[in-house]
């Protein structure tokens, strides 16, 4: 766990709030940290809270989407929560809709989404 972004175990899930500006290298370290945390805890779900991020470019968006896909390979469902309106509009205008990534309005609803995904499995 080398990066500046803490990853917490909350109940059966991992919760992480990205509270710093994501540079390319921080994003990569974050991805590794998340995957190691999944490996260590065997968490069933992962909630990534990006409500603090004022901009997300396609590189960071891809790291976030890939992290979710990698987690899925390890059997962990993930939800991206709290994306700001400006970030959503910008990504869509660039043609990057992050298809296949689960989303929710906030952390609570993200956790609820994970629970419903588990039921429907």
């Amino acid at each position: 766990m080398g990066g500046p972004i803490p990853i917490l175990k909350v109940g059966p899930n991992l919760l992480t709030t990205i509270h710093v500006e994501l540079t390319d290298s921080i994003a990569e370290v974050f991805q590794q940290d998340v995957l190691r945390a999944i490996e260590r805890t065997g968490a069933g779900g992962l909630v990534i809270d990006i409500s603090v991020l004022e901009e997300v470019d396609t590189y960071v968006a891809r790291v976030l989407a890939d992290t979710g896909r990698m987690a899925a390979l390890m059997g962990t469902r993930s939800v991206l929560v709290g994306m700001r309106p400006e970030v959503a509009a910008t990504l869509v205008r660039m043609g990057y809709g992050m298809e296949g990534v689960e989303t929710a309005l906030d952390v609570d609803r993200g956790i609820a989404r994970l629970a419903s995904l588990k039921e429907n499995r």
């Binding site: 929560v81 709290g82 994306m83 959503a88 990504l91 869509v92 205008r93 809709g97 989303t103 989404r113």
Partner: peptide
Amino acid sequence: LKTTAAVRLLGA
């Protein structure tokens, strides 16, 4: 469709 895609990114 773009609006729908952006709304989905917010989680709605």
